[in-house]
Write a protein that binds this DNA or RNA. Structure first.
Lengths: 226, 226
DNA sequence: ACCTGAACACCGTTCAAGT
DNA sequence: ACCTGAACACCGTTCAAGT
């Protein structure tokens, strides 16, 4: 603080991650970032082309955590895949503005490349042929990142507030006209079961079930004799 | 045009949908909307509380199309569910700013309620018990809406441009160090197969496979004698 | 070489004033 | 009752000028 080290890319990235972790994702403007860093807001343009470039760097930094301390590669493939997908989801959940993350393409994010490599490796290890492995990889990414986008706003609330919101939604379903919405009214109390993570896990496990079954079916077609 | 009818909610919603359909989603500011409508930008606040409220109304309007002209309810349940999910995805793809869509809760969007009702009805018709039906419902929504968020930027490009981008990404994977990224290098040419819709369909079918298998397993557990 | 500060072209939103 | 227009408090970004 008293010393004034020259501004680096790392300083900026670090400051943003602190703001995100501190639960103040609305303060991510370059102007606010400048005051936090004790620097003119436009100084950031010395190190990043534009805000998109900056957020991409932050995204890659967050993705680094996804790959750290995974189960050993000899663990059951499905355990590893589930762990990676849950962490990918968590990484996306912690990051506002996911759009600028993947849209610009994987080759720009070093850690996303490592993530792709590890997922494809595990899917292949599961005995899934290359064509299905690629489709399965895309499916896993879409579910993990996509569910994070939908849950992002709810996860910023603490568990009690969140449950209160869900309860109000259940009540709204329950109060519908039973002639027009018979199933919704009947199932209202069962909606939004458990926490968002738990619901994601169900979706992920079912998707993996389907991927496994389909891959087994295909290899049976190709090698009819057992 | 020559006549100047009083501004209504419908006028505003119509104008936004025209802008989206016209492929100019970046011109959705209230100022631009005002000039398109031949009205002062702030006049819109007479009919909508704020921009969030406005975009929610637009979202509900787009969702109305999802429910129009579905296959008859007597069609195979899976056909209906696949059709609904594909249309939900398409609806989300056509809409920028999906965040303000679902985060405020289903009870505020009339057509989303109808969508929920129809999906739960079909899942129950499939013989899936209520507990799994609710989880399956959430899983289907997350995959449909989530995949749309990830694909949104690519779908704005026409097929030729898009394929060029994918080809450049494949090339980037192919050019990686084969010692560090052996599987990626080997599978590079297979990445991003088909169009985004096709990849989504694969994910959806596998998810439904898993949902069906899991539900069958559970009912077998509960009713062991066949 | 790096940072500043004024400026530009935008946002969403409010509110007193018009008709 | 409805709309206008000035104003407010913000954005991201550029660029000549400072040190």
């Amino acid at each position: 603080m008293t010393t004034r080290p020259r501004l680096t890319r790392e300083h900026v990235i670090e400051a943003i991650i602190d703001l995100i972790d501190g639960g103040r994702p609305e303060e991510l403007s370059l102007r606010h970032l400048g005051t936090v860093l004790g620097v003119d807001p436009t100084a950031i343009y010395r190190h990043f082309r534009d805000k998109d470039d900056l957020m991409r760097a932050v995204g890659d930094r967050i993705l680094a955590n996804v790959m750290a301390d995974l189960p050993p590669p000899t663990a059951p493939w499905r355990d590893i895949v589930v762990e990676m997908c849950c962490r990918l989801r968590a990484a996306h959940l912690s990051r506002p503005g996911i759009a600028s993350f993947l849209k610009s393409g994987p080759p720009q994010l070093e850690h996303e490349l490592r993530h792709t490599e590890a997922l494809l490796f595990q899917l292949r290890r599961a005995g899934i042929d290359d064509r299905d492995a690629v489709l399965a990889y895309h499916a896993l990414i879409e579910l993990a990142a996509g569910s994070a986008v939908l849950d992002a706003t709810m996860v910023t609330l603490d568990a009690i507030e969140r449950e209160a919101v869900y309860e109000s939604w259940r009540a709204a379903y329950g109060a519908l006209d039973p002639d027009e919405f018979p199933v919704s009214v009947e199932m209202a109390s069962r909606l939004y079961p458990g926490c968002p993570d738990h619901r994601y896990l169900y979706a992920l496990e079912r998707l993996l079930d389907g991927i496994e079954a389909s891959a087994a079916q295909r290899s049976r077609d190709h090698v009819p004799a057992n």
